[in-house]
Amino acid sequence: MNLAAHSASMAETIVFAILSAGVLVGGLLTVTRRNPVSAVMCLVLTFAALAGLFATLSAHFLAVLQILVYAGAVMVLFIFVVMMVNREESTPIARQGLVTRAAGVLAAGYVFYRVAWLVSHERTLPLLAASATPPVKDFGTVSAVGALLFADFLFPFEAISLLLLLAVVGGVMLTRHVREDHSSRVS
């Protein structure tokens, strides 16, 4: 392995370490914040770092979408709702049924441990060891993914757009003010 390749690999590792640290620390901070506004901010950090990871995976289109849709639109939505609903929380973790939920977390940890072990143990498998960008033209670019979306996955694409429409309508219906008086058309 020559020096240039080695230093490129080195840089790549450092970038990956920083980004994944951002993702995980952001995630942990999100989950542990008492104030939802801080949580949202940490989640933005997580999603931004995640977009970076996407980029290192040559998923350029998805990286941009992650920033636009998640770190942008969805998080703004969260901020709005947090502003509407925000109330001081006396205890961040409910006492009731804590044992069950702690057992659930432990069980999730067990699953995590098992799968992580398997993945690290089998890291030499071709599928898990692959590290190069595949020799596909325009891999992960808007045009390549867009071509797939509008050719092979046209029907699911239209279906998902319908789902989004439904979600919008449903959101409007759910948050609409229900008046007590009968003059309202909503009952």
Binding site: E12, T13, F16, S20, V23, L24, G27, L28, T30, V31, R33, P36, A39, T46, L50, L53, T56, L57, F78, V81, V82, V85, E89, T91, P92, I93, A94, R101, A102, G104, V105, A108, G109, F112, V115, A116, V119, S120, E122, R123, L127, L128, A129, A130, S131
Partner: peptide, 30 residues
């Protein structure tokens, strides 16, 4: 970076999310 590293990050993030869903009281954080 090799794929397994990304998978481990993904697993860890999933677990952190799961812990948040199971433990936190605030609906928004869930």
């Amino acid at each position: 970076m090799p794929t397994y590293a990304y998978i481990l990050v993904s697993l860890a993030l999933f677990f952190v999310g799961a812990a948040g869903v199971l433990l936190r009281r605030n609906v928004l954080i869930v």
